[in-house]
Design a binder for these strands. Structure first.
Lengths: 158, 158
DNA sequence: TTGCTTGCAAATGATTTGCACTGCT
DNA sequence: AGCAGTGCAAATCATTTGCAAGCAA
């Protein structure tokens, strides 16, 4: 596989940036764990500094390699951009902040796309990308049987 | 109209809170302007203090009267909860942060709901509420003819 | 060498909170 | 009296940024 790395390398290069080991480490963490917060990224990538990680995310977002995932909680969550991983949506746990990637039926996507285009036009709004996410409780945070275990944390300051 | 205010008053009362003029002012601003940031709320509601406004939003959110709207930018945007205004979605301008409320076709909503329920089940996820939003450029921020005017501001720190 | 990288420490700025006081009930 | 509301000022904490040193082209 001419893997995603080549693609990323090219995107960075086009912007006059280098695909350094630091950035690569960050990307690999995102590829491995999916939507993550900065603390999570730092924990998964020993050697990365907080400031550098933030800086990298900013650059990578600008270049279109990573994108923010809207979630509750104090930390911004980021993931590899749709363009690299394929279009998908999210199941967001409002209790622990966890995010699960999911894909929807093509026909449905098309229907949503069409409907949004219609309302957008009505407001002279130029649409670029749609988000669809389901908020609720993940397996670990849901009440009842299954996992009454400990949520992965990440709540608001209380 | 037994207006939304009664409903809100009841919700607050159930939580042992009072529907004070300060809270009412905040609600009225949201009802009037739709999704707003705290600075916008303060500007529209003379007499409200920043700390009180933040506190009110926290309580009102907990009681289910207001909800956060996921948007880019530094300030959290809030609006009256779906339960009070009717289910709707958003057109989010990534340039100025403006948010426009829109409603989608009932059939489409149902289809999305069904599809999400299916994937949620697959992940033992308990869904509660779905969000659908279209990101792009609002009339004022879109390039080209129409309004090459000044965006309503509100960007990231740059 | 010229410019992109980065670590460290200091700065920013949105949001939260402690405390004291006012006002319902 | 007893508890909720609220302003003010101080505290927090995620995120950003200045600066100086390291490295690749």
């Amino acid at each position: 596989m001419t893997s995603v790395h080549d693609e990323i390398g090219r995107l960075l290069d086009d912007a006059g940036l280098r695909y350094t080991p630091g950035r690569r480490a960050l990307i690999e963490v995102l590829a491995r764990r999916g939507p993550s917060t900065l603390p999570e990224i730092l924990a998964a990538a020993p050697g990365l500094t907080q400031s550098s990680a933030y800086r990298h995310l900013g650059e990578l977002e600008a270049v279109g390699v990573v994108q923010r995932v809207p979630t509750p909680g104090d930390h911004t969550r980021v993931e590899l951009a749709d363009g690299l991983t394929g279009h998908h949506h999210h199941l967001v746990c409002d209790a622990c902040g966890a995010v699960i990637d999911v894909e929807l039926d093509t026909d449905l996507e098309a229907a949503v796309e069409t409907a949004l285009a219609r309302v957008a036009a009505r407001h002279a709004f130029v649409g670029e990308r749609h988000d669809i996410d389901l908020h609720g409780r993940c397996r670990s945070c849901a009440p009842g049987p299954s996992g009454a275990a400990s949520p992965t944390a990440t709540r608001r300051r209380s």
